[in-house]
Design a protein around this nucleic acid. Structure first.
Lengths: 143, 143
DNA sequence: GCTGAATTGGATGCTTGTATCCAATTCATT
DNA sequence: AATGAATTGGATACAAGCATCCAATTCAGC
């Protein structure tokens, strides 16, 4: 349902959301999130192009969030790498029912709408702030 | 979000749900649903293997629903060709939090749970019975 | 300005999803 | 039993997702 790339992107964003003294190096994020380093660099490039992440080249450079963690929702991240395609028009090119969806596609789109709203309701900041036994980021107990 | 194959499978199932005098031929379903005939035959094979469709070879043969349309949910069809993978355990292999999901994956799985329940709440029969201006099956006005 | 650190982009390879075609098989009908 | 109708399965092809590697670029700090 959600692609591997989406999973990687989310892990990376959560990782970036915990404020580091310096920008995160791609290799450090890869280690923390257990994402293949070479591939992660491609995913991060997508997030940069989407305007969610800021990158700084050169020594002392790395990756930082482009916006505050409280201003970035899970949906933002998902849409950056694999946009959720709502069904706005009949997938068959039937002119007979113009903008109205048939019962089948109305239900499919309804399911997509639920996903959107569920993913939009949480920001990165909330994920970290949430009180839980499990570690905030999906990581081991020690820093 | 939903693959092309899922879309094709759903169209085919809705088509099969409208009771024909004789079994549906694959080529007829393909025409009705505007699905590439050669590929549709592969999708139908999956639905047969999943136990949702019954196939009969030879003259006068074709495809029929294996169960009543009222006993087949949209979720059944989706799961037959592209099973919805719930997140039951942390995608990272972190032993530190065993069965408990971190806040991120709890939310992702929650979204998946919503999709499941939305797709489970409608049967093929309901799709056809629903009063609507659009034609029941996503098709043109005339039979 | 040099050097090392870090991202960027291109090239490549493997696997899966999408799609097509055809020979083989099965079965109703004659 | 012979014929034609229909599914089945195998082989093939192309695009996209996933993943890796390396040269090129950019920049901080000396």
């Amino acid at each position: 349902m959600f692609s591997q790339t989406v999973e990687y992107a989310l892990r990376a964003m959560v990782c970036l959301a915990v404020p580091p003294p310096r920008p995160w190096k791609t290799s450090d994020i890869a280690e923390k999130t257990k994402v293949p380093p070479a591939y992660l660099s491609k995913v991060l490039q997508e997030l940069v192009r989407a305007g969610l992440v800021h990158s700084q080249r050169g020594a002392g450079g790395g990756m930082t969030l482009a916006r505050a963690a409280a201003e970035i929702t899970i949906l933002d991240v998902v849409n950056a790498v694999e946009p959720i395609q709502r069904i706005t028009t009949c997938p068959l090119d039937l002119k007979s029912h113009g903008v109205r969806l048939c019962p089948l596609h109305r239900r499919m789109d309804n399911a997509l709408a639920h996903v959107e709203s569920a993913l939009r309701s949480s920001t990165l900041a909330e994920l970290l702030a949430e009180p839980t036994m499990s570690t905030p980021l999906c990581e081991v107990d020690d820093a």
